[in-house]
Design a protein around this nucleic acid. Structure first.
Length: 714
DNA sequence: AATCGGGGGCTTTTT
DNA sequence: GCCCCCGATT
C-alpha cells in the first residue's frame, strides 16, 4: 500500500514517524487531516496495530465524521472498532461502560448548556438567591470554568471576597441537584472521566494497554482537563501524536490553553517536532499577507511561515466603505461579479450582529445565502420537550426531564403544585416522580391538582408500556401524539407553531434515520439516540445542494476553505473587538482570528471597513483595523471610497434613485475599463453620473452621457 | 395561561 | 436598534 504517495517530504516524515511522541505543527491548509488519516493507515499497515488499539480525538463531531469517512475510503477495512470522536464523545462512551465505577445511574442523561442554565436557575431559586445579583450566565461560567480546570467545589480556593464563597455554595448545590436527577453536564463528562481513570489504577492500566496509539487533532484547543486526560491514557509505550497550530488558537476565552503545545514538548519528552508549512490552499499573496499579519504576534511556538508552490495570485482588496450599508452593498455586488459558484464564497464577520445588513444587501440582489450557526435542531425547545418525555419513559427519576414537561403542554399542574412536589422531594430526599406519587397516595392535593397530576403520571406509565416494543421512530411518534404536544401546536395561531409542528415531524424522521444507521455503540438504541441528540446537536437540517454563499463568524470558519472570502468590519473596536483591546493576550488571539480568516481564502480575498458604522443605535467613527496596517502595502490594493457616496433612505427598502435609465447592480462594459457593475448614481439628465466598480480598474465615477457603457444582462 | 410592554444587555461557541 | 427575559395584566 503506497501510503506515502502524493505526500510532500514533511508530510511523509510525520506519517512515518516512529512510535514515540510526535508533535506536528501544521499550518493552515497544510494537509493536516490527510496526514492524520494516512498516519492511522500507516500504523495499521506498517506496525500491524489493530484498529481496536487506536484512539483518534478531534475537536468537533464534524471533524470526527470526516476522519472516519476518509479512513473508510483509504483502509477498505471496517473502522467500527476504532475509537474516533471528540473528547466528549469518547469520555461519554467510557462513562457508559463504567457507569458503576463512576457512580452514575445506568441511564444517566446529558445536560446541554441550556439545560444547565435551567438547572442553575432552579438551584438559585432553592437557595433564595436572586438572579439579578447572581446572573445565571455568570454562575454557569464560574462552574464550567472550575470544572474545566479540574476543580470540584470544595477544592476551589476561596478568595478574600464574599462572592466566591456564595458561588462555591451554588456550585455545590448545583452538583447535588445534578446527582439527584442523574444528569451530567458537558464539563462533568470530562471531569468525571478524568477522576474515574485517576482513581482506578486498574482501569487506567487497562486503557493504557488498549490504546497503543493516540492521535489528537487541534491540540491548541485542548483545555486543562483534556490535557490531563491524555496524560492519564498514555504510558511509555503509547505512540502519541498531537497535531496543532498555535497560530490558529482562537478559543482561549473558553478555557483552551495554547500553552499545552509547549507543555507537551516538556511533559512528554522526548518529542519529535515536525512542521508542515507548505500550503495547498491559497495564493502566495494571500499567504504572504497572513504571514505578515501573524508575524506581529509574539510568543509563537513554531514561528511557521506558510509557503506555496502555486501562483502569486491577485492582490488582496481593501475596500473603504462609507458605512456598513455601503460595505454590505459592496460585498453583494462583488459576489455578483464573480464567476465562481456561490457555494465557494464566504462572508466572514467578527460577531453575529453584523450579518443583518449583509443579508439585506444579498436579498436585494437576489443572492441566495445561508447563515451557519444559530439554534440547532436538537436544541430547539419543542424538540427538547419531546425528548424529555423519552427521558422520563426511560427513567422516571430524571428530575430534569420531569421539571421540563410536567406541565408542557399546559395540563393544569401549576407552579403551586410543582412547589409542593419539590418540597416533598426535598423532605424525603427522593425524586420528583416519587414525591408526586406519594402526594397522590396521601390525597393531600386539591382535587383538581390531584387529577391533573394523576393524568400526567398515567400518561408516562402508559407511554412506557405502549412503546416498549415499538421501534424508535414509532415511539417518538407516539410520544408526540399522546403527550399532547402535537395537539398543542396544531392550534397554530401563529406560524411559529406550525414550524414547531414541522420540527416535531422532523424529529420522527431523525429517529427513523438514526435507527437505520450502523452504529458501533454497545448502547441500547434509545440511550444512544438521546446521547446523540445532546452530544451531536448538529446543524439545523442541512438543505443540501442549493447554491448559496456562506455567512458565518470567523470562529465558525475555522477548518473551512472558500475560493473567495470577504472579511467585513475591519475596524478597531469591531475587529479587534473592543473587549479585547486592553489585554495583549486577548489582542493576540484576535490577530490569530484574523489569520484564520485570511487563510480561509483560496484565490481572492476582500477586506472591508466602514468609516461610519451604526452599532447599538449609535453612529461610531472607528479607525480602520490595525490588522489592515499590518499587511504589507505591496500585497494590497485599496479601493477608494466614492467621493460622494449615495445615501440609503432606509435599510429595509432599496434606495430610491432618480430614474436615469440604469439600475444599481447593472452589469456594464466600458471600452477601456472592461467589466464592471453599477454601484451608485448621482444627478439626472445630462449631468447624470454613475459610479461603476470595475473588476480591474476599481470604482470610478463616470458621466453617463459620455461613458458609452454597454449594458450586460445575463 | 397567554400576551403585552418595560428594562437591561450587548463577542466569539463546541460539547 | 434589537432581542430576550421577567413581571404584570387580562
Amino acid at each position: 500500500m503506497m501510503l506515502l504517495e502524493g505526500l510532500n517530504q514533511k508530510q511523509q516524515q510525520a506519517v512515518s514517524a516512529s512510535l514515540g511522541r510526535t508533535l506536528v505543527l501544521a499550518g493552515a491548509g497544510s494537509g493536516k487531516t490527510r496526514v492524520l488519516v494516512s498516519r492511522i493507515a500507516w500504523l495499521i499497515h506498517h506496525h500491524q496495530l489493530s484498529p481496536y488499539g487506536i484512539l483518534a480525538v478531534t475537536f468537533t463531531n464534524k471533524a470526527a465524521g470526516e476522519m472516519k469517512e476518509r479512513l473508510n475510503a483509504l483502509l477498505k477495512i471496517s473502522v467500527l472498532g476504532m475509537w474516533v470522536g471528540t473528547f466528549h464523545g469518547i469520555c461519554h462512551k467510557l462513562l457508559r461502560r463504567h457507569y458503576k465505577q463512576a457512580k452514575l445511574p445506568e441511564q444517566f442523561q446529558i445536560l446541554d448548556s441550556d439545560d444547565q442554565a435551567r438547572m442553575i436557575k432552579r438551584v438559585l431559586a432553592a437557595l433564595n438567591l436572586n438572579t439579578e445579583q447572581w446572573p445565571i450566565k455568570q454562575v454557569q461560567h464560574f462552574i464550567n470554568n472550575k470544572k474545566d480546570s479540574g476543580l470540584r467545589a470544595h477544592k476551589v480556593p476561596t478568595s478574600a471576597y464574599g462572592p466566591t464563597q456564595t458561588l462555591i455554595q451554588i456550585y455545590q448545590a448545583y452538583e447535588l441537584s445534578c446527582q439527584q436527577a442523574g444528569v451530567i453536564d458537558f464539563a462533568e463528562i470530562l471531569l468525571k472521566t478524568y477522576e474515574l481513570l485517576r482513581d482506578d489504577p486498574e482501569l487506567q492500566a487497562h486503557y493504557q494497554t488498549r490504546f497503543q496509539a493516540i492521535l489528537v487533532d487541534e491540540f491548541q484547543d485542548t483545555n486543562a482537563i483534556q490535557y490531563a486526560l491524555i496524560r492519564l491514557l498514555t504510558n511509555s509505550h503509547t505512540a502519541l501524536m498531537v497535531v496543532g497550530d498555535d497560530d490558529q488558537s482562537i478559543y482561549g476565552w473558553r478555557g483552551a490553553k495554547v500553552e499545552n503545545i509547549q507543555q507537551f514538548a516538556t511533559d512528554f519528552a522526548p518529542v519529535a517536532i515536525m512542521h508542515l508549512e507548505q500550503n495547498y490552499r491559497s495564493t502566495a499573496n494571500i499567504l504572504d499577507a497572513a504571514n505578515a499579519l501573524i508575524g506581529h504576534n509574539e510568543d509563537r511556538v513554531g514561528e511557521k511561515k506558510l509557503w506555496t508552490a502555486g501562483d502569486t495570485g491577485e492582490k488582496v482588496t481593501i475596500y473603504a466603505a462609507a458605512n456598513e450599508l455601503d460595505e454590505a452593498r459592496f460585498v453583494a455586488q462583488r459576489i455578483k461579479m464573480q464567476t465562481l459558484p456561490l457555494n465557494e464564497m464566504a462572508i466572514l464577520y467578527r460577531s453575529n450582529a453584523q450579518s443583518r445588513v449583509i443579508e439585506e444587501a444579498l436579498l436585494r440582489l437576489h443572492i441566495p445565502y445561508r447563515i451557519h450557526g444559530g439554534v440547532r435542531f436538537f436544541e430547539r425547545a419543542e424538540i427538547k420537550d419531546a425528548l424529555a418525555y423519552l427521558r422520563l419513559i426511560l427513567r422516571v427519576s430524571d428530575n430534569d426531564a420531569f421539571e421540563r414537561v410536567v406541565n408542557v403542554p399546559p395540563r393544569g399542574i401549576g407552579e403551586k403544585t410543582q412547589d409542593e412536589i419539590r418540597a416533598r422531594a426535598k423532605a424525603h430526599a427522593c425524586s420528583l416522580w416519587q414525591a408526586a406519587e406519594t402526594l397522590l397516595d396521601e390525597q393531600v392535593l386539591s382535587r383538581r391538582a390531584a387529577s391533573a397530576l394523576k393524568q400526567f403520571l398515567d400518561l408516562i406509565n402508559d407511554l412506557q408500556k405502549r412503546t416498549l416494543h415499538n421501534d424508535l421512530a414509532d415511539q417518538m411518534h407516539e410520544i408526540i401524539q399522546q403527550s399532547g404536544l402535537q395537539q398543542h401546536f396544531t392550534k397554530a395561531k401563529h406560524d411559529t407553531a406550525l414550524s414547531k409542528l414541522d420540527n416535531l415531524q422532523e424529529l420522527v424522521n431523525a429517529a427513523k434515520q438514526f435507527q437505520a444507521e450502523p452504529r458501533d455503540e454497545d448502547l441500547p438504541l434509545l440511550t444512544a439516540f438521546l446521547a446523540h441528540a445532546s452530544l451531536e446537536a448538529g446543524e439545523s437540517q442541512a438543505l443540501v445542494d442549493e447554491a448559496h454563499v456562506h455567512l458565518m463568524t470567523l470562529h465558525a470558519a475555522k477548518g473551512l476553505e472558500f475560493g473567495v472570502v470577504f472579511l467585513v468590519g475591519m475596524e478597531e473596536e469591531v475587529f479587534p473587538s473592543k473587549l479585547s483591546l486592553e489585554e495583549p493576550k486577548r489582542l493576540a488571539e484576535e490577530r490569530r482570528l484574523c489569520y484564520v480568516g485570511i487563510t480561509r481564502a483560496m484565490t481572492k480575498l476582500f477586506l472591508s471597513y466602514a468609516e461610519v458604522r451604526r452599532l447599538y443605535g449609535k453612529e461610531h467613527y472607528h479607525r480602520p483595523s490595525r490588522f489592515l496596517k499590518e499587511l504589507p502595502d505591496e500585497l494590497t490594493h485599496h479601493l477608494k471610497l466614492a467621493p460622494k457616496p449615495f445615501k440609503f433612505k432606509s435599510s429595509a427598502a432599496p434606495a430610491l434613485q432618480p430614474d436615469i435609465g440604469v439600475a444599481i447592480g447593472q452589469k456594464v462594459r466600458h471600452v477601456t475599463f472592461g467589466l464592471g457593475i453599477v454601484l451608485a448614481t448621482e444627478g439626472y439628465g445630462a449631468h447624470a453620473r454613475v459610479q461603476v466598480s470595475f473588476e480591474q480598474a476599481g470604482a470610478k465615477w463616470l458621466v453617463l452621457a459620455y461613458a458609452n457603457l454597454t449594458y450586460i444582462n445575463d
